Computed example of a mutant assay.
Amino acid sequence: MVENRPWMAWITHLVLLCGVLLVAFPLWVAFVASTHAGGDLLSGVTPLLPGDRLFENYRTVLGSGLSASGGVPVGLMMWNSLVMALSIAVGKIAISIISAYAIVYFRFPFRMLCFWLIFVTLMLPVEVRILPTFEVVSDLGMLNSYAGLSVPLIASATATFLFRQFFLTVPDELTEAARVDGAGPLRFFLDILLPLSRTNVAALFVILFIYGWVQYLWPLLVTTDESFYTIVMGIQRMVTVADAEPQWHLVMATAVLAMLPPVAVVVLMQGLFVKGLVETEK
């Protein structure tokens, strides 16, 4: 029997409130800084209340960009990051779910060897294989392109492993019933396995979208054309300016804008994301 202790509820809510304040306070400071003039942030005292430059600062970074960092508009950099993140997330999920389906439901020579070769690539992150990958991308003429930003990053051993583990939990009776009904491999995959995997797909999409959005090292190597800069590269260039003080009010405005797409994805897909993690529908 669970005792009703009102004071415990108050303590729990107080701890949660402290946690929210701890996480939200830096975000609030960044937003407040993005609404002030540049000189207000160089006085040594960080303001905690919004200023009167909200629309002016955001219009500047979205429209003309920061001249000290090359003048690349933030809107263009956010579009590049969006294309890269969506390509990586969709590509990883598509390749992983198809490869996991082949490994689980098809019997071909060296099937498990292929799976373990895929799984072993977890020990080879981008940083380890970055030089040969860059050489291949350069030889294929994919520098300064959306394909060069996303294609080398779309393979995912982790997603393949997760989909394989889920497919192994699907009852064999379901497969037999589909075969009796005359469903071929493609129909079984599209009409049965894919709908059953929607929570897994949603959870992986959120994780992989954020993974693609925050990429820095690979875009830094494969892009020299400013029209293909990503938002993370843009923030770094705004901070590391030469012979001048960083315009922190514009940097903070860019940082706030950079947080919006990942937050929107998490908020819109949080229901399916939680289900995919706790496996309530499996």
Rank of each mutant, 00 (worst) to 15 (best):
D139C: 02
T160F: 01
M123L: 11
A177K: 02
L131H: 03
D172S: 11
F110L: 14
D181T: 04
P109K: 14
V104T: 11
E127K: 04
V136R: 05
A155K: 01
Q165R: 13
P132M: 09
E173S: 15
T158W: 14
E176G: 03
V151G: 00
P109R: 14
V170H: 07
L143T: 12
G141K: 11
L149N: 05
A157M: 07
T169V: 05
P132F: 06
R129T: 14
M123K: 05
L153H: 01
R107F: 09
I130D: 00
P109C: 06
L113D: 06
V151E: 02
I118Q: 09
V128R: 00
P171W: 06
L143H: 06
A159G: 06
G141N: 08
F134S: 00
Y146I: 09
T121W: 00
R164T: 15
R179V: 13
L113G: 15
L113S: 12
F110P: 09
L143Q: 09
A157R: 02
S150C: 07
F163E: 05
I154F: 03
F108E: 03
L124W: 03
L117V: 13
V180P: 00
G182I: 01
F167W: 06
L174M: 15
R179G: 01
I130A: 12
N144W: 08
V180E: 02
V137E: 00
P152F: 02
R164A: 10
F166R: 11
V137K: 00
I118W: 05
R164L: 13
M112Q: 14
L122T: 08
R164K: 15
M112V: 12
V126F: 10
I154P: 01
